[in-house]
Amino acid sequence: MKRTVPLLIAMFAGIMLLASTFIPLTETWGETVTIWFDILAVGAFVLGGGNLLKIHLEKISSKRSGWAFSVVTLLAFVITLWVGLVQWGVNPPKLYPTHSWAGNYIEEGSGLFWIYDNVVYPLTATMFAMLAFYVASAAFRAFRAKNIEATLLLFTAFIVLLGRTYAGVFLTDWVPGFMAMITGMTPEHFNTMQLDELTGWIMNAPNKAGNRAITIGIALGVVSYSLKILMGVDRSYLGQD
């Protein structure tokens, strides 16, 4: 029972979504199933929150290494949740002035907006910006021309790094004209010898071809795995219990 019911629900939802894609009459069924997903996702948020509390409370109570970070995590979680739930600092909307809870939770001036503006925004932006420093360090230490494949990758990286800036135009803008002068052909024949144009070609030809092949391969894999789930052959997603 514990496995059969979830299996039937998964099969039913999957078949509904599949049918709604190919049979216009069943289009609205697909919408309904998708909305079920949204409703279930709300439950997943609660489970996720509960799981976060459980893991970090266990870590704090057993004083495992790094337990102080867990205290910070839990404080941040609880304070943000509370500020959001009580709609701290949120004004009622102009349209419904008597309904204090109808305001926009993240409007400018609200508590949640303050957290966003002063904590989330600077922290996430800083994390992202720091990547440049780590990538530079990694480039110096790890990007080695150890074999033919690595050397090809290295030269491609040079072309793209320079081609994605003004350096590409500055360094190679003269090439088509010069080549035309030597060969007597028109400069357009040699456009791809400019770094910026060559970058465009790398993205448009080898990259596109490789990514298309990977995407089609993945899609075929997804189709085969989805069919296994729909037919109840693969039940690993149900877990061990």
Binding site: R141, K146, Y166, A167
Partner: peptide, 23 residues
């Protein structure tokens, strides 16, 4: 922002070249 990107990319190219010379 492209000004910063230009200099950063040139620095990356130099770092890769120096790193390979060292290697």
């Amino acid at each position: 922002r492209m000004g910063a990107q230009l200099v950063a990319h040139i620095l990356m190219v130099i770092l890769i070249i120096v790193g390979n010379i060292v290697y």
